[in-house]
Amino acid sequence: MDTILGPLYTAVSWIIVQFHKLYSLVFDKDSGWAWGLSIVSLVIVIRIALIPLFVKQIKATRNMQALQPKMKAIQERYKNDRQRQSEEMMKLYKETGTNPFSSCLPILAQSPFFLALYQVLNKIAGGHEVGVLDQTLVDSAREAHIFGAPIAARFMDSGDKVAALGATLTDVRVVTVIMILLMSASQFYTQRQLMTKNVDLSVKTPFMQQQKMLMYIFPIIFAVFGINFPVGVLVYWLTTNVWTFGQQMYIIKRNPTPGSLAYKQRQEKLRAKGKLKEDPAEVQTKKAVEAARANRQQPKRMTKAQRQAAAAQAEAKKAEAKKAAGQKTSLTKDAAVDDQPARAGQQPKKKSGQRKGPQRPKHPSKK
């Protein structure tokens, strides 16, 4: 691993040394302030470099939220065919230009620097040179204490090892426990801020359930692994959590997810300030609804006599309609009876007194 991460050891140690030189102008070069602030500055440099990836993460997360209903439909349709389900999912990602792994880019990009810092602090604790840190700088870093705990000490270190770093086991464990709690709490509130303010709650999707689970799982993971982290790594991770919280708060305030609570609050503020440009279609629909409400007449309250008269009038209209319908039915039946012989192919009977045909002139009778 040292061979693979060697360049990162050099990069991380070089950044720390440069900031240490800067802070040594203000603080004692062997103090925890000089070395601790150097680690904090390392985090800031890395997070500024990762801002483009963070923007991609935000876009990818929103795209995944928007695709959840379609993904759920695909899973229901092809629940018995895993291969077809995967093919349809990949097709959906390709059509929408969504990469499901983009949301993990900032964490993945930070991981090598995190591992490099971890190894650098381990080398410092052992008194070994690493990267651009020569023996003088290594000894200076070993003597640096943050609130009484050496930056290279860990919660699980033995008393002898902590004593060799010039501290007591109680000081180290108290400081590490407080920093682990702060680290876990910052992680929890960062995820909670995302779930309560920047998620469209009108659509219930499996993605929301996953995010809710991560809100509780991540702090526990950090608490468990934190006891094996050196104090300097805890400083690094606490700083990056605070940075993430502030950065996320800025994004939620400036560009919240449509349909989320933060989005509705922002729309209300812009509307109150007169800065919200409403959609013309929405404005027209709103005007039509208001006009319909204005023109709508409430039914007048009638007295008992008026109600009885209205009921009698309605009954009279019904009777007239039935009578007209009966007359029409009678006429239709008569017409049907008259037309029946013709429909049966028979000649209509002629009435009495009607000539059957042309009559011949009568001759005078013979006498």
Rank of each mutant, 00 (worst) to 15 (best):
T3K: 07
P7H: 07
I16R: 01
Q18W: 10
F27T: 14
D30V: 08
D30F: 11
W33K: 00
A34E: 13
V40T: 13
L42A: 07
I46S: 08
L53S: 15
F54A: 05
I58F: 08
A60R: 03
N63P: 00
M64F: 06
L67S: 04
Q68T: 11
N80F: 12
N80I: 10
Q83E: 04
E87Y: 07
E95K: 10
T96H: 05
T96S: 15
N99F: 12
S103H: 06
C104H: 00
P106N: 07
S111G: 12
P112D: 13
F113G: 04
L115A: 08
L121P: 09
G127F: 03
A141Q: 10
I146D: 00
F147C: 02
M156E: 14
D157R: 11
A163I: 03
T176F: 04
I180Q: 06
L182E: 01
F188W: 12
T196N: 10
K197I: 07
N198P: 02
N198I: 08
P206I: 14
M215V: 02
I217C: 00
P219N: 08
I220N: 00
P230R: 05
Y236P: 03
N255M: 05
P256W: 14
G259Q: 06
S260E: 12
L261T: 09
E268A: 15
P280Y: 04
V289E: 09
V289D: 01
E290F: 02
E290P: 00
A291M: 01
N295S: 13
N295R: 13
R296K: 08
Q297P: 01
T303M: 03
Q306L: 02
A310W: 01
K317Q: 15
K317H: 13
K318N: 14
A321L: 11
K333R: 08
D338I: 09
D339I: 01
Q340G: 06
Q340D: 11
P348I: 04
K351G: 03
K351F: 13
Q354D: 05
R355F: 09
P361W: 00
P361S: 03
K362S: 06
K367Q: 05
